[in-house]
């Protein structure tokens, strides 16, 4: 880990960054986000399999945005989120020094987002087998069974909004669920309100979700939220040939029209 620390120290020392976002050991066996040069000691920096949190979520946090030059040690899904955030005009590439560590433990500093794009395309992991299996079993269910499955799962939602808070693509300054004129989404954490909330969120992320799985990982109630996004990601990829966070400059599939778009689902 020494080389990570050395690298971060150097970037701070030569003034390349005002803050460097990386990982340190967190609670249990998880890594936590660290804010070097501000609140964490560089010597504690780590980068390993425990570093699962998508750090891109901090790039739109008010307190972080206020720094002029930001370094970030990104895991794979953070890189994808960065591409998607750039595509949605949420970040200005010039402001960031983006690094990662490859399989051979070498630190890679990306010169620009095009290099990030090449990296995410070349290193895309296979989808998790468990997820594919679960999606399969869900699509084999009839509508009533699926309704039963989701009713049971979503009943336990407590509306803590951890899914929204941890999602790198949930950056709206005012979330639809916080609007009350009109009240689109029922506030109470019970059957209908929970359905409205999770369906709305999944639909807003369709074609934008970078499949980091944070929503599912952080859900205190163990609701398999990732299934909703994974299903929609597959549909978007199948119908429009697009995968969020993989191609720089890609349009958002659901808000752009192409002449050869399939229309068979319009009935």
């Amino acid at each position: 880990m020494d080389n990570i620390a050395k690298n971060i120290n150097q970037l701070i020392a030569d003034g390349s960054v005002d803050i460097f976002i990386g990982y340190v050991k967190g609670n249990d066996n998880r890594a936590k986000a660290a804010f070097f040069n501000i609140s964490d000691k560089v010597d504690n920096a780590i980068f390993d399999a425990s570093c699962t949190q998508n750090l891109a979520v901090y790039l739109h946090k008010h307190e972080i945005k206020s720094f002029a030059k930001i370094g970030i040690f990104a895991n794979y899904s953070t890189l994808r989120a960065i591409i998607q955030l750039a595509n949605e005009n949420q970040i200005k590439a010039e402001k960031y020094i983006i690094q990662t560590m490859n399989k051979d433990s070498q630190i890679i500093t990306f010169a620009n987002l095009t290099e990030v794009e090449s990296y995410v395309q070349a290193n895309r992991p296979a989808p998790a087998a468990a997820m594919i299996q679960k999606l399969d079993s869900l699509s084999k269910m009839d509508r009533d069974e699926r309704w039963e499955f989701w009713s049971k799962e979503l009943a336990s939602c407590i509306k803590c909004y951890a899914c929204r808070s941890a999602c790198p693509m949930c950056y709206c300054s005012q979330c639809t669920t916080d609007c009350n004129q009109p009240q689109w989404i029922g506030v109470p954490a019970h059957g209908q309100g929970n359905f409205e909330w999770h369906i709305m969120r999944a639909m807003h992320l369709a074609g934008r979700c970078v499949a980091c799985g944070e929503c599912q990982r952080v859900c205190p109630m163990e609701i398999p939220l990732g299934l909703l996004n994974a299903r929609l990601n597959i549909d978007i990829a199948t119908n429009f040939g697009e995968t969020a966070g993989m191609t720089l400059g890609a349009d958002y599939a659901l808000s752009s029209y192409k002449v050869d778009d399939k229309e068979h689902f319009i009935r």
């Binding site: 936590k32 986000a33 660290a34 804010f35 501000i38 609140s39 979520v57 901090y58 946090k61 307190e63 972080i64 407590i158 509306k159 803590c160 909004y161 951890a162 929204r164 808070s165 941890a166 952080v218 205190p220």
Partner: peptide
């Protein structure tokens, strides 16, 4: 300093 990582959800309180 301690709150920079806080994402502002309600998991802790709930």
């Amino acid at each position: 300093k301690q709150s920079l990582a806080c994402l502002g959800c309600g998991a802790c309180a709930f």
